[in-house]
Design a protein around this nucleic acid. Structure first.
Lengths: 296, 296
DNA sequence: GACATTAATCGGCATAATCGATCAATCCAT
DNA sequence: ATGGATTGATCGATTATGCCGATTAATGTC
């Protein structure tokens, strides 16, 4: 015998147990008295127990009714909480979104988007992971991030992706460098230069190896981890560097220049990445939408 | 917007979230696939949120679905417990009954009934209060006892009552007492006897005062609390006593006699008493039924 | 004993639920 | 590619359920 009871019936039961009067309780529930009478009977049938002892003068809970009332109060409460929780969630008054982004994006472009998101959905907790591309992917795969903004070299078949930005590489050099006067530079112009590169684990490095390897420029004198170090080395005349546009803010110095590369140049494609096997939460969908709107 | 969701829908939702397949889940729920599809849609409409992301190949919970699933599991569990609890109660596998009875009844007649009740409904807890009549009434009024077996002198208007037994009084005397040879005794036969009476708080005392006061026999030498004391006093030749039949088991002694009183005699009516403003629990109803069946 | 109050019942109707059949999409094997 | 198999959604017809208004029956009150 399968149980079937609706929230409506539970509510009607509790209303009657408070009002102790069918007519009044029916009004409370916005149904006719006859309907209400039927509802109580239905519930009693369902339970197989008489819940109220009633005549035209008195309506009083039976002991079974008392027992059930206690339980029903809890049930109704729990159900209401469950629903209001979910509806808050749907209304994006609650929730959680985690976004993983390359440090360059996380520091340069993302903050404005996050600010806007916070303004729109103040109740949603936001988590930002500023990590390298491969880590971004891992976080998404492990479910620790809903969305990633990254430029991975590895395959993206496993993920849902969308093009976000083509980040072109610039030559960074000191103002007194031989190529500093050129409006654009070619790989040939850089032959013989000392290159300062980011560590192998960065996507910048990998894209560069792919591109520069192809043009034959492979010399590399330095390999460092932080852009600030790159800047310091360049300023001391120890070399030049090829870095994507999104990092240029780190090189705003009177003695430094960023020169675009001649076509076709070098670039890294940055993607919006998320899991395709699991749908995005509403909070994450909203974030994705905002990211698209504010796309570079 | 009033919530309305049925247990059936919650169960369907959980089934689908486990089976991840509409057709299979529908079979589990004993409905057609089309019906099942409609049920899930109805639930989603009700909640205003998409719970499953589905195509013909995959059925996967959305994050909102996950959230709801957790809550729904608890709800379904609670509802099932509530129902099974109540049905145990209805089936009298569980429950509680408290009965208040005069000490004479509690010691003499009740144990067999209690034993039978226990045999019939082993899961129900039984509470017995062996107290004097007035206390019996108090316990019932306070809800500490469901049913009382008592012989109160006070008004019973407040209660629902039913006649249980007419407890006739007997004369208890020593075998060598002047009236010992009579088959029945009258009040006249007892003129001048010393009477041993139970204390004023007992219903026996009060019935006796009413009856004997009317026939003019008012002498009273002793007033004690326990029947065993009465027996001792009589055995030592200090008097006789008038006591109801239900107490006679306390006077089975070779030197003691119980002699019926001549018509009309004296008697106390014993009633089954319970609250009339509150219905009896099922467990108590069963007890009442048994008491009626086994009535003296 | 008449009256007022109130829960239960009845008949009719509208809506919702259910089913079987079919459609459309998706994946898989070839 | 392409055809077949699987599966969820949709459609139309049928049935069941829920709801209402009117009426009835029971009960307490004056």
């Amino acid at each position: 015998m399968p149980i079937n009871v609706s929230f409506k019936l539970l509510k009607a039961f509790l209303t009657l147990s408070e009002q102790k009067n069918f007519t009044r309780a029916a009004e409370h529930c916005h149904v006719s008295q006859s309907t209400f009478s039927g509802m109580i009977q239905r519930l009693e049938d369902e339970l197989g127990a008489r819940l109220f002892d009633r005549n035209t003068r008195n309506v009083v809970l039976t002991p079974e009714g008392e027992l059930f009332a206690e339980a029903a109060r809890h049930l109704v409460n729990d159900i209401q909480w469950t629903f209001s929780d979910l509806s808050d969630y749907v209304a994006k008054k609650k929730g959680h979104v985690a976004i993983a982004a390359l440090p360059s994006i996380a520091g340069e472009w993302l903050p404005a988007v996050i600010a806007e998101y916070r303004r729109l959905y103040p109740g949603i907790a936001i988590e930002i992971h500023d990590v390298l591309s491969d880590n971004c992917l891992d976080l998404v795969r492990q479910g620790q991030a809903d969305i990633a903004l990254a430029a991975p070299n590895s395959s993206l078949d496993e993920y849902a992706t969308e093009h976000f930005h083509t980040d072109r590489f610039f030559l960074i050099c000191r103002r007194d460098h031989p190529v500093a006067s050129l409006p654009v530079v070619t790989m040939d112009d850089l032959r013989g230069c000392d290159f300062i590169r980011l560590s192998r684990s960065t996507s910048v490095h990998q894209h560069l190896v792919n591109a520069v390897g192809a043009t034959g420029v492979t010399s590399s004198s330095f390999e460092v981890k932080y852009l600030s170090t790159v800047a310091g080395l360049i300023l001391h005349g120890l070399g030049v560097s090829l870095l994507p546009e999104l990092t240029l803010s780190q090189f705003r110095h009177p003695d430094l220049l960023a020169i675009p590369l001649a076509t076709p140049g070098i670039s890294r494609p940055i993607h919006i990445i998320w899991r395709k096997d699991k749908p995005l939460s509403l909070a994450a969908q909203a974030m994705l939408e905002l990211v698209r709107q504010r796309k570079l």
